[in-house]
Each structure stands twice: as structure tokens, then as C-alpha cells.
Design a binder for these strands. Structure first.
Lengths: 191, 191
DNA sequence: CGTGTTTGTTGAACTTGTTCAACTTTTTCC
DNA sequence: GGAAAAAGTTGAACAAGTTCAACAAACACG
């Protein structure tokens, strides 16, 4: 059952009682997202949070120059949210697109907010997960500053070998912050 | 009184009752940190969290190649913490150094953890602050990928004009992820 | 199954940013 | 106030990464 994956995931970040787990999970609805579909598109207000059960998403933004910039890839066990848009009801800068047929557990904003009130442990859960996320973002920034594109590519492929297989080189390049032509040259050299 | 600054700051992120505010604040001790002093040094385990009341800190890491990489600068109203080290009792990768005579409000880890239990609103407070921080880290990453060093320098100086005046060009360059020689050339060109 | 579209490759010229070294200016601190 | 140290400047040679264009390979889909 898909909720089991969610339960297992959150249990790594906070201890919730059986009742709390049930309360938490019951607001999440399973939804199938076909390949190439956008779960969220730049300009829309994000009114949900999602947890990937199956498949893969790319979260990216398109800047003024028209370049795609990939923030992250989300496979099983990753969260999909645009915090800024969700919190402040503002149009999102992000696109969330399924790279293959996928399944997500979705919670509506109204239910999420109610959950914070009715199950205080959910505050801790998201506090802890958010703090872990900060650490990850900080580390990625440091890597971007201290490593070459080649090193970053190697780090990415060795850290996420199972995600890499689902991606095109173009998508990987937009995650690393380089052109896909240059990634092609990197791959040639390191072979 | 220095606690007033803290109260004002947290009130922007969560609504705490008078009692909760008092409970929260009473665990913070004011400490003066002379210029150039390290509040935390790479390799130590971080057992506190700090809130800057006065002065300025630089939070940076030194990588294997010996290069300094500045994560952020913290002036009045900013938090000082190494989440990873604090949460997981692991040696920190970070240095927190006062750039001028500074004052911080410090809370010990043991008190912070107790506070999460005794004042649940503190969970929400740090959940909200952490989520805001994630948004900021994501934005910075996108900027690093989509903008040139010149654009990033201009963004930094216009976003933090009051911090810039406290910094050397070397420190700014290490924040932008470029060499100080190149920053010097950028400044010459844009004049 | 084939054809149109997207993805990947390669090279040449170019831009951005680095390195090193020599020098000047500013700050530190006794 | 003056010597030493740190920070900033500049130029030349270099390395990393981009751009554009042309072509090849892979994939999508009616």
C-alpha cells in the first residue's frame, strides 16, 4: 500500500504514535501522473504538497533568458512542494513535471494547515525535514563553488545512480548548471 | 534590551503568547564576541544556536584545496547555527567568525531541546523559519546558475547594502564563489 | 514502419573566470 | 608613529565553460 512508504519515510524523521500516523496519512490522496504531465506550472499558486511514491519528477524554473534551471529531481521518497508559493499564496516560479508515469500522495493546503493544529507532532516532523533540507542545499552550494563541472557530474552520478538512469543529459546539465554541449564533452573526456 | 530584538524577530514568524515568549527568551544568554574571535571552529561539535544582536559574523568553510567558501554573513537579526553538527553531534564543517565586536544571544543545545518539549509553538517557529531559509537557499542556487559573477555582485550589494560596508572584497568574493582578483576587475569595469 | 522531433556529438571561435606574480594601498598593532 | 601584515590592483598567460552551427543517433507516435 502506498501509504506504507509514507509512514516509513516520516518515521525516519519523527516518532509519531499509531494514531498520529493514521491522522497524518488519511489526508493524502494517491494520484497517478502520466509522463510529461505538469503537477505544477510556473505562474500557478501551489496549494498542495506531494510525496512521490513511484516514478520521477523534475522541478525546474525557466529564467528571463529562457534557460531551464533544474532545482532537483524527485523520485520515490522525495517531497514535491513550492514552499514560497504555498506559504504566501504567490504565483510559483517552479515547474514540476513527471519524467515518467508516476504516483504521488497529495495533501491539500487546507488539510495540511489543519494537520499542524490537530497533530502537533507534524510540526516537529516538518521542522526536522526542513532543517535536513537546509543542510543539503548548503552543501550543494558549496560544491558548486568549490568543484568543477566534471567533479559535480561525478558526484551527482555516484550519489544518485538510480535517478541518473531516468534522465537525459540535457536534464542533468540543467541540474549541474552547465550547457548540455559541455556535459557531452565532459563525458567524452572521462571515458 | 537585547531580548527585545529577539522577541521582535520571532514574532514575525510565529504568534507566541506572552508566557511562551518569556519561556523562550529566558534560555538565551547574551555574550560579547570580540572581533576576529571564532564562535565555532571547523572540527568542533556545535552545541548551541545563536542569534546576532549586534555586529557581524562570517560563516565559512575551508575545502580540501584550502579555499575559503563563505556560506553567509550574519548581522543583527540573523541566526548562527550549524544544523548538521547540532542535530547529529558531528564535527562541524563550518567556521563562525566575528568580523567586528559583536553580541549574540546563545542557547545551549540541552535548553533548546527542552524548549521544543515545553513550548510546542517553538517547533512551529523553527519550522517556519527553516522553510523560509530553504526558499532563500534555492534562490541563491538558481542565481549562481543563471547569472554571471557581475550580476551576482550587483545583486548582493543592492540586497545587503548595510552588510557590504562591513566586508572586505576578499570576503565578498568568497561568498560569490569567485577569486578576489576577479572581483577587483569586475569593480573596475562597472565603474 | 517510417518520419518528424528531440537528444546527443563535435569543432571552432569566443567569453568568463583563474592563476601567478609584482606592485600599491590600507590596516593592524606594538 | 612606524614596521609588518593583510587587502586590493593590474597584466599576461591560461583553463573552464559557452555559443553557434552542422550533423548523427535515438525516440515518439500516428
Amino acid at each position: 500500500m502506498s501509504h506504507d512508504i509514507l509512514v516509513e519515510h516520516i518515521s525516519k524523521n519523527a516518532q509519531l504514535s499509531k494514531w498520529e500516523l493514521t491522522e497524518f496519512c488519511k489526508h493524502f490522496q494517491l494520484k497517478s501522473i502520466p509522463k510529461k504531465t505538469f503537477l505544477l506550472e510556473q505562474g500557478e499558486v501551489c496549494t498542495f504538497e506531494g510525496f512521490v511514491v513511484e516514478g520521477c519528477f523534475r522541478i525546474f524554473t525557466i529564467d528571463k533568458k529562457g534557460n531551464e534551471n533544474t532545482l532537483y529531481f524527485a523520485t520515490k521518497d522525495w517531497w514535491l512542494m513550492d514552499i514560497d508559493s504555498f506559504m504566501n499564496r504567490k504565483p510559483s516560479d517552479l515547474n514540476m513535471q513527471a519524467l515518467e508515469d508516476s504516483k504521488v500522495l497529495l495533501i491539500r493546503k487546507i488539510d495540511k494547515l489543519a494537520l499542524y493544529e490537530s497533530v502537533p507532532a507534524v510540526e516537529k516532523l516538518f521542522r526536522v525535514m526542513s532543517q535536513k533540507a537546509i543542510v543539503a542545499w548548503q552543501r550543494r552550494l558549496i560544491r558548486n563553488h568549490s568543484q568543477t563541472a566534471t567533479e559535480r557530474y561525478q558526484h551527482f552520478t555516484s550519489t544518485y545512480p538510480n535517478i541518473v538512469t531516468k534522465l537525459t543529459d540535457k536534464q542533468i546539465a540543467s541540474y549541474l548548471g552547465i550547457t548540455h554541449e559541455f556535459l557531452s564533452k565532459i563525458k567524452k573526456k572521462t571515458n
